[in-house]
Design a binder for these strands. Structure first.
Length: 219
DNA sequence: ATGTGATCATGC
DNA sequence: GCATGATCACAT
């Protein structure tokens, strides 16, 4: 992908296409449902737009500084799910700051692609929505930064296991793992190393809904 | 084990 | 009805 305009145009051209058609173009088969294929739609759009495959803690288009995010919407245009941003560092966090954080890096420029998330419609028949580019404005950045800082302070204080998804205005911390038995290192209450469930940062739905509403003049 | 892509399913 | 906590598939 040579430049941002080319990427955006390519994404725009996908609007209205069914998942069946998009999958056909890329030789992919459509699963009956997403129960055991939770990331399938995201992968489909990555393939369609030529995002760098693989699982690296980088943006999808590093050369463009762009992160690709699909977001499932209901019939009213409201996000059906929170949006995963990145995994949360739980150790070696002395000196990490907002400016250098993975959250800020990932959200600096996002190519959002709304998708039809209505479960009553067969997956193959659901369609791609109108893509748009987003960069957090000053107030959004302030909210994200504040939440990020509060979460990271608790983690640094050995309080990671006291953080629930209720905390954070727009950015929440939640488990991010294959199952409840997966463990990773973290800092405990007395500064010791403990084993805990890996966590991830997620954007709350009200936050993404506001972005969607503003973009498409909904309500 | 840790990262990517996320949605599922249950409790409130 | 909806968010939280749990979970699924796959790459490295």
């Amino acid at each position: 992908m040579s430049d941002l305009r080319t990427l955006f145009d390519a994404a725009s051209d996908l609007a209205g296409l069914s998942f069946a058609e998009l999958a056909r173009r890329h030789g992919m088969s459509v699963p009956a449902d997403l129960r055991r294929h939770k990331g399938w739609v995201g992968q489909l759009l990555e393939t369609a737009l030529g995002a760098t495959a693989g699982s690296q803690a980088l943006q999808d288009f590093p050369e463009l500084g762009v992160e690709l995010k699909t977001i499932p919407l209901d019939a009213r245009g409201k996000p059906l799910e929170t949006t995963f941003v990145c995994t949360t560092p739980l150790v070696d966090i002395t000196g990490v700051n907002w400016e250098s954080s993975n959250v800020r890096n990932k959200l600096q420029c996002v190519l959002w692609i709304p998708i039809d998330g209505r479960r009553e419609i067969p997956l193959a028949q659901r369609t791609v929505g109108t893509a748009f580019l987003w960069q957090p404005d000053a107030s959004e950045t302030a909210l994200l930064k504040n939440d990020w800082q509060e979460h990271m302070d608790k983690i640094a204080m050995g309080q990671v296991e006291r953080i629930t998804a209720h905390q954070g205005e727009v950015l929440q911390l939640r488990p991010k793992a294959a199952n409840g038995r997966v463990l990773t290192e973290a800092i405990g209450p007395d500064g010791e190393r403990i084993q805990t469930l890996p966590r991830g940062f997620y954007l709350k739905t009200d936050f993404t809904w506001n972005i969607i509403r503003r973009t498409f003049n909904l309500d």
